[in-house]
């Protein structure tokens, strides 16, 4: 087993020295092994998305190191880490370029982290390949290769973003509450598709979610965050047998807080 992601003593404080100072990540440590499908839960402000953004390289961390598949990426901005990372965002509009064609979006994604020269953006073979890949989504998109992505629904766009993230197999797939903006039925479809794509490509994935049931149902490992730290880490059989009630109790134990106010946020 190789370590796909190693977070070592990560610290991040937003607005340091101001009245809005927020210690978002405090001495965070995490190791993900190849093939891990990790779900991340926690209340608002617990640091879930902050951890994911630190890995993606949205901003530099204050302290600590980030290693993806053996490469130290701590000093690299997001676009230079992109060759290692596939990303799907919370807002379905974020992951695709609305004014560009579906096949153009896929072509952009299949060149993730590669040099972009003066060759034509899509080859004939690629187009065929995209058609085959789109068929697996089962959304009828294989006939709409030249449609502007802006014409697709939110669910379709998330499905396309997922496909884009996996076209060029990433070392790490980052899913940032990628079903939160969808209706429950579409969310379920996109989650099932996520699982399919992750297992088919044997990807290592990190999925942030607000939904405890999803966090339990998907993936082989679950962590819970609280005030910038990981307070709970469970995997394998133990995770499979987990219930929402148990999870809430654990949260109370470790945080020493009533979950009354958090309960509404950590929706069941």
């Amino acid at each position: 087993m190789t370590d796909m992601l190693v977070l070592k003593n990560i610290h991040k404080t937003f607005n340091p020295g101001t009245i809005n100072e927020k210690k978002a990540l405090i001495n965070l440590n995490l190791v993900m092994e190849e093939g891990d499908f990790l779900t991340v839960i926690g209340g608002n402000g617990a640091g879930k998305s902050t951890m994911l953004n630190a890995v993606a390289g949205v901003w530099p961390v204050d302290e600590g190191s980030i290693t993806i598949a053996g490469t130290d990426v701590t000093g690299l901005p997001d676009y230079k880490r992109a060759s290692l990372i596939g990303r799907v965002f919370q807002d379905p509009m974020t992951g695709t370029a609305a004014s560009m064609q579906l096949e153009e979006n896929l072509a952009l994604a299949s060149r993730r982290g590669k040099k972009r020269g003066l060759a034509w953006q899509i080859s004939k073979e690629e187009r065929e390949h995209y058609r085959e890949e789109l068929k697996t989504l089962d959304l009828g998109l294989e006939d709409r290769l030249t449609a502007k992505v802006g014409l697709l629904s939110g669910g379709q766009r998330q499905a396309v973003t997922l496909l884009m993230a996996s076209l060029q197999k990433p070392k790490l797939l980052l899913l940032d509450e990628h079903t939160a903006a969808l209706d429950p039925k579409t969310a379920k479809k996109v989650l099932d598709l996520t699982e399919k794509i992750v297992s088919r490509n044997n990807l290592t994935a990190m999925m942030v979610t607000h939904n405890m049931r999803d966090a339990i149902a998907y993936g082989n490992r679950l962590i819970m965050m609280y005030e910038g730290q990981i307070i709970f880490d469970i995997r394998g059989e133990e995770k499979k047998n987990l219930t929402v009630e148990e999870l809430l109790r654990k949260f109370e134990d470790v945080s020493g807080e009533e979950f009354a106010d958090e309960k509404s946020l950590l929706s069941k």
Partner: peptide, 28 residues
């Protein structure tokens, strides 16, 4: 021709969606 090449489409992507472009490894 140019805006149909890999480089030209990266310029168009930057204008269309900078966040997505960065995620695809484009130096916007």
């Amino acid at each position: 021709w140019y805006f149909g090449t890999e480089q030209g489409s990266a310029i168009r992507a930057t204008g269309s969606n900078p966040e997505m472009s960065k995620a695809q490894g484009i130096d916007i």
